[in-house]
Computed example of a mutant assay.
Amino acid sequence: MPQRGNRRELLAEAAIEVLAQEGGRGLTHRAVDREAVVPEGTAKNYYPTRSALLIAVARHLAEQHTTALRQLVSQAPAGLTSADITKLYASMLRRSAGNARSQYLALFELHLEAVRNPEVRTALAEITRANADAAVELNAAVGHRMTRRGAGLLDAGMLGVALSVLTLPEDVADELGLSDADGVAQALLAVGSTDGEPVVGVLRDCAS
């Protein structure tokens, strides 16, 4: 949890946990107050409506995510290799079911909310653009050209795999190879790099 002096950030982090534990229907001002351990009425004072609360969470996640990605790209070592990028994306997949589980579950709830809430949709767009920018820049650093369309395919694939791993029975994820973070990352990066070339051939190359 953030420092208690920053109430807006504290409440946004608490709302993430509520979304992860209770889903969208469980996101209430009282639930956020309880999670943040603040007096009842605090969340409503800062975010008067449920929509305002959801938008705050979306913007908070977007800010965190884009800041982390910009830092990642700016600090990429000079000797970066394709293998390093694959390890990075595999690590992201592992985090989605590990120490970033709450953030990913909240993100999926926000994607559902975005169908009806344009402001949430705008915040999610910031995350997607940041992911695409990072993918293009990281691949360029190792001499690979990835278009924004390819980066979009990569991002959608990462999001879809994370969702499947979090929601499918473990034996099904294992059966389909979705729990193999390294293999999945390699396949998704290859598909993104082809930018629309036949996927079957790309996946065959990854498996060989």
Rank of each mutant, 00 (worst) to 15 (best):
residue 136 V to N: 00
residue 192 G to I: 01
residue 193 S to G: 15
residue 171 D to Q: 15
residue 25 R to T: 15
residue 162 A to H: 06
residue 74 S to T: 14
residue 95 R to W: 02
residue 200 V to G: 01
residue 7 R to W: 12
residue 192 G to R: 00
residue 158 M to Q: 06
residue 40 E to K: 12
residue 82 S to Y: 12
residue 138 L to C: 06
residue 64 Q to W: 09
residue 168 L to V: 04
residue 125 A to V: 14
residue 3 Q to F: 14
residue 66 T to H: 07
residue 177 G to E: 08
residue 39 P to D: 02
residue 42 T to H: 05
residue 92 M to D: 06
residue 161 V to A: 09
residue 99 N to W: 09
residue 121 R to N: 02
residue 95 R to D: 12
residue 117 N to T: 07
residue 85 I to R: 00
residue 113 E to D: 10
residue 155 D to T: 15
residue 198 P to C: 00
residue 44 K to W: 09
residue 128 T to A: 14
residue 19 L to H: 00
residue 118 P to K: 10
residue 78 A to H: 11
residue 5 G to V: 13
residue 204 R to F: 01
residue 80 L to W: 08
residue 75 Q to C: 11
residue 32 V to L: 07
residue 83 A to E: 15
residue 25 R to M: 12
residue 103 Q to L: 10
residue 205 D to L: 01
residue 198 P to Y: 00
residue 22 E to N: 11
residue 54 L to D: 00
residue 6 N to V: 06
residue 39 P to E: 08
residue 107 L to T: 05
residue 164 S to W: 03
residue 17 E to V: 13
residue 10 L to H: 07
residue 49 T to N: 06
residue 151 A to C: 08
residue 203 L to H: 03
residue 183 G to N: 09
residue 161 V to E: 01
residue 117 N to A: 12
residue 118 P to W: 13
residue 67 T to I: 07
residue 169 P to W: 07
residue 189 L to T: 04
residue 57 V to S: 01
residue 72 L to M: 13
residue 20 A to L: 04
residue 149 R to D: 08
residue 78 A to M: 04
residue 56 A to Y: 00
residue 83 A to T: 13
residue 47 Y to C: 03
residue 55 I to Y: 00
residue 36 A to H: 03
residue 119 E to Y: 07
residue 184 V to F: 08
residue 186 Q to H: 14
residue 130 A to L: 06
residue 158 M to D: 03
residue 149 R to C: 08
residue 189 L to V: 10
residue 50 R to Y: 07
residue 133 D to W: 09
residue 80 L to M: 09
residue 99 N to G: 08
residue 14 A to V: 05
residue 114 A to V: 05
residue 93 L to W: 04
residue 40 E to R: 14
residue 195 D to V: 06
residue 57 V to R: 00
residue 188 L to E: 07
residue 114 A to M: 03
residue 90 A to I: 08
residue 133 D to N: 13
residue 33 D to N: 14
residue 51 S to R: 13
residue 139 N to G: 09
residue 155 D to S: 13
residue 58 A to P: 02
residue 175 E to I: 09
residue 171 D to Y: 13
residue 20 A to E: 01
residue 164 S to A: 15
residue 158 M to G: 05
residue 28 T to E: 12
residue 208 S to E: 13
residue 31 A to Y: 04
residue 102 S to P: 03
residue 130 A to D: 08
residue 136 V to M: 05
residue 4 R to L: 13
residue 9 E to K: 12
residue 171 D to R: 12
residue 42 T to I: 06
residue 119 E to Q: 14
residue 142 V to P: 01
residue 14 A to L: 03
residue 132 A to N: 09
residue 128 T to I: 07
residue 7 R to C: 10
residue 110 L to Q: 02
residue 174 D to M: 11
residue 184 V to A: 04
residue 12 A to F: 01
residue 53 L to M: 10
residue 70 R to C: 08
residue 126 E to C: 10
residue 168 L to F: 10
residue 122 T to A: 15
residue 92 M to C: 09
residue 193 S to E: 12
residue 155 D to Q: 10
residue 167 T to H: 11
residue 106 A to T: 05
residue 168 L to Y: 04
residue 9 E to R: 15
residue 3 Q to R: 15
residue 191 V to M: 03
residue 130 A to P: 05
residue 180 D to G: 06
residue 61 L to E: 05
residue 140 A to Y: 09
